[in-house]
Nucleic acid binder design. Structure first.
Lengths: 230, 230
DNA sequence: GAGGCGCGGATCGTATGCGTTCCGGCGCCG
DNA sequence: CGGCGCCGGAACGCATACGATCCGCGCCTC
């Protein structure tokens, strides 16, 4: 009846909805996510909702207890540290690979890294602009940041690495962290990204990996500030 | 009618079955896994089978195409390399953490690393024994190897790292690789594990990480020999 | 008054049914 | 003779139905 009939299935719809509700804070950690009510809200049946919950459980966003249901995962300080350590490890590796492979079509299935990195440079420019404007367009900074990281992973050209990273980055903490970004943090972030792009463009794997690692490990502290629960 | 009525749900049953069938080679890469027939074979309905397939898809063991079904993933040489690189990265990190945390109860939720590592030493002994006997008890070596790696990850005390590792180790390649182990490989493996345990027991993070990395990166070549498809 | 026990309600886990989508083969047309 | 469109069959995606399991609460016993 609407405009779009079936862009994607009901399952994906449920998945996105629950995910965004968690990220937005509408679903607080520890609260239960009932299948029935959610199905009614979305206008679908319990089956796709159930599958979406299983997918979210696989990513660690919710915990499922047999015959009890699914509840939103709680994040302790230690969990946050763990996630950021792993992100540093994985994204560092991604940056290293990106630097090594930049415009060096060694293996098959590679297309146009250089082109992909033109985008990355554009993202960096956007970040810089926001850094100067300071403040208002923070959403834009978040988006530029996300795009830059995505460009790096694309250049790394390692689907499984990307998948692993998604498993730990899916957390709403990444978004929440930005809410606690001080201006100094933002400046440091921009500078870090500068080194990162520099390292990749000059095929300096050590610089790229190191810059990415410090970028993430630095962000960890900003994130830690937003971890309130035990 | 059997003995056990409900040890665990039908979903887990289906999951294990499909997984082992893939590992055993009963399901060859590229072939389709139909929901209906499998449900009949297992004596359950399509629903739990379907959920099991989704779980396996999340781990990358099968690929699901909408309205077509699930088929066993094919492994190219490049996929194998990628998996082993990631294992080296993750297990290396695990070894590093294990060495850093060995008998140093800094954070909460740590119990008895030292005790956990008594087990690890025992596993190492078993590996050594097999190394000397050479040949016959290769299954025992596989098991000892698995136990040792598990002990390291336990000592690393990082649930998410463990989960990520499972995502890439789930592959049947790990088991297959041992089938192509030459005696020299086995000896190298034992020596590598020796350094690994040494590094952890002496809290030498660099040694532990390095030993684990070379152990895995070495095993990659043995695994590469068993990768036949394009 | 405190603790154990049984009952009712709610929710999940699985089974089954129906509509939709896609593939493979056959006939028609250029 | 080759390419294109239609049609039948099969499998999936989702909806719905039913039985199993667990929690909360009131009652009974000590």
């Amino acid at each position: 009846m609407s405009s779009a009939v079936q862009p994607d299935g009901a399952r994906t719809q449920a998945y996105r909805r629950i995910r965004s509700d968690i990220a937005a804070g509408a679903l607080v950690p520890g609260s239960w996510v009932r299948e029935g009510p959610l199905a009614d809200t979305l206008g679908v049946s319990r089956t796709p909702v159930r599958e979406a919950l299983n997918a979210l459980a696989a990513e660690g966003l919710v915990e499922i207890v047999r015959h009890r249901g699914a509840r939103v995962s709680s994040w302790t300080r230690r969990d946050v540290d763990e996630v950021y350590s792993l992100r540093a490890l994985l994204e560092g590796e991604g940056a290293r690979l990106a630097a090594e492979r930049a415009d060096a079509p060694v293996t098959a299935t590679l297309h146009e890294h250089e082109h992909a990195f033109a985008d990355a440079a554009a993202d960096l420019s956007r970040l810089r602009a926001v850094g100067q404007d300071a403040g208002p367009a923070l959403d834009s900074a978040v988006e530029a940041n996300r795009a830059l990281h995505a460009a790096v992973m694309r250049a790394a050209d390692s689907p499984r690495l990307e998948s692993l990273l998604a498993s730990v980055s899916s957390t709403p903490l990444v978004a929440l962290a930005f809410g606690h970004y001080a201006d100094a943090d933002l400046a440091r972030s921009v500078a870090g990204h500068h080194d990162l792009v520099l390292g990749i463009e000059h095929r300096d794997a050590a610089l790229a990996e190191s810059a990415m690692r410090s970028h993430i490990l630095g962000a960890r502290h900003a994130a830690a500030r937003s971890a309130t629960d035990a």
